[in-house]
């Protein structure tokens, strides 16, 4: 991670990129988009596994899993003692899109800011190399243009752009430069910055004054309409790269119930259980309030607390919602209502 660190650029052929990934995967767990059926998802690439990203726009599920893995045992209790278990060593992720790197920047503000930091996320984030891959043609539901998450000037180790036979490589950190130095034979120097045709996104979300508009829109009938469609399946919160809410669950086996692992599991504000306290009271019961919570957190509370929108325009919530709820459409309707009232 770091800022613009070098004025030099590099090129690497697609064959040599494979060699680079093979070499890296021998030293640390390396994750890359892997196709399974119709979808790509980040999976571990073992040495010798061929990188095949033909047809890759973005992964079905976010790369959150490398930084906030589902079901991580963060704490252990055995024979009267507690011990906190941390991720050891290093890891790397190749092919993550700029919008998803922006999502990591949002998570950084949440997990590493505000007086406390979350020690497990911190350990993984500090020890994972990030090799993003710039987008040419966006997916059907992308709107990164609107959320200003299309470009990256910082927070990567090596930034890759597909320019045909080669990838253009821009180093972004000391670690990135070290990798180039250690694999000199694979890289050629280049004086040009990467230049590709950026096809604009089809969907748009106007963010001007959005937190203020949302603050006044709590009673809008648009939320009732959305709540009528929503089945509270939590697919949106699951597929969102900036959703991070979690529960700490005590787990043990029946053979030794007092040897306990405390598991950090993702939780979803769309579900009733999310706000249920002992005794059964659910603080956020009506579906409309839970629907509002998702939109408001991404577009109002998020900017108020972390200084930037939590939504990065990846479009996954639109792709995953079986009830056809589209965030760009919902916000469009809220804005129309607001403009009519003026």
């Amino acid at each position: 991670m770091g800022g613009p660190i070098s004025s030099k650029y590099y090129l690497i052929s697609k064959k040599d990129l494979q060699r680079l990934l093979d070499s890296l995967s021998k030293k640390m767990p390396l994750f890359a988009p892997v196709k399974h059926g119709k979808d790509f998802n980040f999976k571990r690439l073992e040495s010798g596994d061929k990188l095949d990203i033909a047809g890759y726009t973005n992964t079905e599920y976010p790369p959150r899993g490398m930084f906030l893995p589902e079901g991580e045992a963060v704490l252990e209790y055995n024979k009267g003692k507690f011990s906190e278990n941390f991720f050891k060593g290093k890891a790397a992720v190749f092919g993550i899109r700029p919008c998803d790197v922006h999502a990591l920047l949002v998570l950084d503000r949440v997990m590493l800011g505000h007086d406390h930091f979350e020690s497990h996320y911190k350990r993984r984030r500090e020890n994972t190399l990030v090799f993003p891959l710039v987008c040419g043609t966006p997916g059907e539901n992308c709107f990164c243009d609107s959320m200003l998450t299309r470009n990256l000037v910082e927070s990567f180790d090596l930034l890759f752009t597909d320019i045909g036979h080669h990838y253009h490589v821009e180093p972004g950190s000391k670690a990135g430069l070290e990798i180039i130095a250690a694999n000199k034979g694979l890289f050629q120097e280049s004086v040009h910055k990467a230049a590709i045709v950026e096809v604009p996104c089809k969907k748009k979300l106007d963010t001007a004054n959005l937190p203020g508009i949302l603050a006044k829109a709590r009673a809008s009938g648009v939320w009732d309409e959305v709540a009528k469609q929503c089945v509270s399946c939590a697919s949106c919160t699951f597929s969102c790269p900036t959703c991070y809410c979690f529960s700490l669950v005590h787990d043990s086996g029946i053979a030794d119930p007092e040897h306990v692992k405390v598991i950090r599991e993702l939780d979803y504000c769309m579900l009733l259980r999310y706000s249920r306290v002992a005794g059964g009271l659910v603080f956020r019961e009506p579906r409309k309030e839970r629907v509002q919570q998702f939109f408001y957190h991404k577009l109002a509370y998020g900017p108020e607390n972390e200084g930037r929108f939590h939504c990065v325009g990846c479009g996954r919530c639109i792709t995953e919602c079986m009830a056809h709820i589209d965030i760009t459409d919902v916000i469009g309707r809220i804005r129309d209502e607001h403009d009519k009232r003026k």
């Binding site: 998802n41 089945v231 697919s235 079986m322």
Partner: peptide
């Protein structure tokens, strides 16, 4: 919580995306 949560945890592609109606939700 709905079966959808189990599907997501297991990394299963939603059947609705393939045009198959499912009682999961």
């Amino acid at each position: 919580y709905p079966v959808c949560v189990d599907c997501k945890k297991a990394g299963i592609r939603c059947l609705f995306k393939d045009g198959i109606p499912c009682m999961g939700p």
